[in-house]
Amino acid sequence: MTTAADTVPVGSTGDRQAVAAAIELTDIAVRFSMPTERIVSFKEYVLKRLSGKLEHRELWALRSLDLEVQPGEIVGVVGRNGAGKSTLLKVISRVLRPTRGRVVIRGQVAPLLELGAGFHFDLTGRENVFLNAALVGYPSRVVQEHLSEVIAFSELEEFIDLPIRNYSSGMLARLGFAVATMFRPDILLIDELLAVGDVGFQEKCLKRIHDFRSRGTAILLVSHQLDSISEHCDRALWIERGALKAEGPTDDVLQRYSEGFAES
């Protein structure tokens, strides 16, 4: 139970006491069970079920995965398509429950996976800020207090009261990022470093991410861009077919990963 609490956190600053890991996965497995053919009607389902023709295909997206991420650490995750990276992020963000194993998450998770999930195009930017913040779990009272900062960060002052159907994709992404990172989360999940807006804005995003990290946010970065992993991460994981293939210092793991790719 307290295995994580006993280890000394890698990324923590000196004045802090031993802190429990932010993310702690023990022997995680996720199984998807899908019908081999798509059944769309209840009638069909009942008939198939009664005649015993209902077949399921099992797919293990994750097999047996252990992972610990300490506060203030940035961990990179690499792997081929379908290796289980997205499933891993979904398990950590609670979207999926593992079929087996234990997940312990200490603190608030901010997934930067789907910026603006839940945005409605008929609503204004301002209305969407409140809605999106509520989806992540921030009360509107607190959002109200920080609204001007969010708008300033997104650089959308002139457009914030327009329906977002008039926004460009860059504007949407900026608003999404600004809302998602309105408060410092304990855990930040990033699926590909965002190509949000222009270079200036990207810099601003990176700055904010590093600011979070220096104040104790644990970050998991999934990416196919190996340079961005080696640039930002303390440590890396290589996931292959739902299991951990390698783990360790970023450059070692990346090197083995590239070699592994070259071989196959």
Binding site: P139, K204, R208, F212
Partner: peptide, 8 residues
């Protein structure tokens, strides 16, 4: 940049 506040 305005440092974003800690989560409530």
């Amino acid at each position: 940049p305005t440092p974003s506040p800690a989560q409530p």
